[in-house]
Nucleic acid binder design. Structure first.
Lengths: 157, 157
DNA sequence: AAAGATAATTTACAATTGTAAACTTTAGTC
DNA sequence: GACTAAAGTTTACAATTGTAAATTATCTTT
């Protein structure tokens, strides 16, 4: 019996490929997944079946349909899935480095007029209450002492 | 003998914690790492030593000093490490979802005046050449056919 | 130089992940 | 209804990761 909840487990890199197809097609049969991924990823069909099963067990895919060619549906939206991965990453970055990281991402990726506009207004909204600087939050309370050299982080650039 | 190059291997979640401390302190001894992480992560000292060794093997840490309390130095800067992780993630996101994802990140995180200003000008620079929309690039050539339901992605929101 | 304290290396072991073969069941077809 | 093809389930197995104990080597201090 497939899980209904995604037990706080993670979507791995390989599994992510499966999810992408499911999201793109708004649900897919194993046949479709095998077709797409055996080519794109050079995986054997067995591999793809395993990934589907694991995603079901983890609660990220639900099987639907009564008779055999079942369909697999994502239990979260693509944006939710992305948020999951992105937050897991950003929650482990030094606060001081998030700004430069976002700047780089904005520079590096192609964004639509609309997205740029939204970004611009978001920035305008945040500006009035933005702090002068965002300090490093790596070591809780920056409990560094003299004998360990202190928090060098503030000198980072 | 420790690797000099990071053989295109990854920094895992646990290893990342070690790197953060090394970066924050601009290099650290195993003693410092154990002090910091045994508390923060509730790890045994042995665990931390293993992580240090693996990071050395992967080429992300270099040991320096001639006599015993060695120091471990990162072979890449924190920003480079972050870029590595961030790119690994963003390279596997549907292009169409990157805009909304960045908007959300900018909203969600505290950014300094300076970072907001840089972001703003970056946006201004990009605007003139920004496309009306950024299409989904999930399925290479979107080689979806009628019998698989076609690329539903363009309808995503 | 012997002991004791530190630091580093080896060994360990279960869980997860990547990858897949083998086997079983079921939907269609003759 | 028997056969076959497609779909789904079980089993497998090595590599990586998380976590750590045991062992060995090296400073430091009597």
């Amino acid at each position: 019996m497939a899980q209904t909840k995604n037990n706080n487990r993670e979507i791995t890199a390989s599994e992510w490929e499966v999810m992408r197809i499911v999201w793109t097609l708004s649900g897919a049969t194993s046949h479709q997944l095998i077709e797409s991924l055996s080519e794109k990823m050079a995986w054997q069909e067995s591999t793809i079946k395993t990934l589907i099963r694991r995603l079901e067990e983890k609660g990220f895919l639900n099987r639907e349909g009564a008779s055999r060619p079942f369909r697999y549906q994502a239990t979260l939206s693509e944006q939710e899935g992305i948020n999951l991965q992105v937050d897991r990453l950003f929650d482990n970055l030094c606060a001081m480095h998030i700004g430069p990281t976002l700047i780089r991402l904005v520079q590096q990726h192609e964004l639509s007029q609309a997205d740029l506009a939204t970004l611009a207004s978001t920035i305008t909204e945040k500006a009035p209450t933005a702090p002068e600087t965002v300090p490093c939050n790596c070591l809780t309370n920056c409990q560094m002492t003299e004998n360990n050299g202190g928090c060098q982080h503030d000198e980072a650039k």
